[in-house]
Amino acid sequence: MIKSAFAVYIQGIKTAIASRMAYRTDYFIGITVMLIWEMVVPMVVFLIYRSGVAFPNWNIYEVLLIQGIFMIAKGISYPCFFGIVWNTIVRVQEGTFDLLLIKPRSALFMALVTGFDAEDLGKLLGGGVLTGICLANLPPANLAQWLNMFIYFILGQGVMFSFAVIMAGTGIKWVGNFRLYEIFDSVTAFGIYPQSIFAKPIRIIISYIIPIAMIGAFPASILLGKPVPQLGWVSLGVAGFLTLSLFYWRRMLASYTSAGG
């Protein structure tokens, strides 16, 4: 079963890349635009530091490392599974969401398979470069730090997935609302700066309840040797968030299949 699901997913990626390659110029323009967009926040940080001020106890490379790792996290999750969001929104709007329901797989899996987005691989590239620049200007981390950061990073991907599922679920009900991405961008804005600048209640929320700090801030903090919450508690938070998101998706899907028209 898992083998067959994987085969379907690989086939989905193949078709998505083939589709994208039909418009190569457009593809590269798209990647460029996206990279410019992703560089806005690092540029703002740069301009703030340039004017002679700083986040207390964080130098500029340390701050940009968070944003670099965050961008890598997006560079992986956006192509691989975040496409379920636009895929669901577009399909519900056009009425082709029904086509996913006549396939002998779960609707979420079908949305995943048909939602691979090759364009977002550009984020991976941008994030890699930014992270590389920062690491070159920071003292090296040891192997244990790298391993630890890797665990947190994977959990962060779980948070991204949960977020995608919640947004896609909302897209089922809230027809044609592409502004949902703004919600994601605004909430994750808490995750791309040093956690110490936020008030305590906010920090608790973004560490354990909607654990977006797992995406970039904690992995970067580990590499920098700065303190992060214990793995046990944060993984509990991630598991809770994931369960909640899947439950929410089910509710929304049920309301789709029981609606009429």
């Binding site: 909430v187 700066y193 040093p194 600048i197």
Partner: peptide
């Protein structure tokens, strides 16, 4: 959605500037 997005972004902004100042 603007009622969520606007204030949330502002909360981030204000945290940033309070730290910087």
């Amino acid at each position: 959605l603007s009622l969520v997005v606007g204030p949330v972004f502002f909360l981030v902004q204000s945290s940033i500037w309070k730290a910087v100042f």
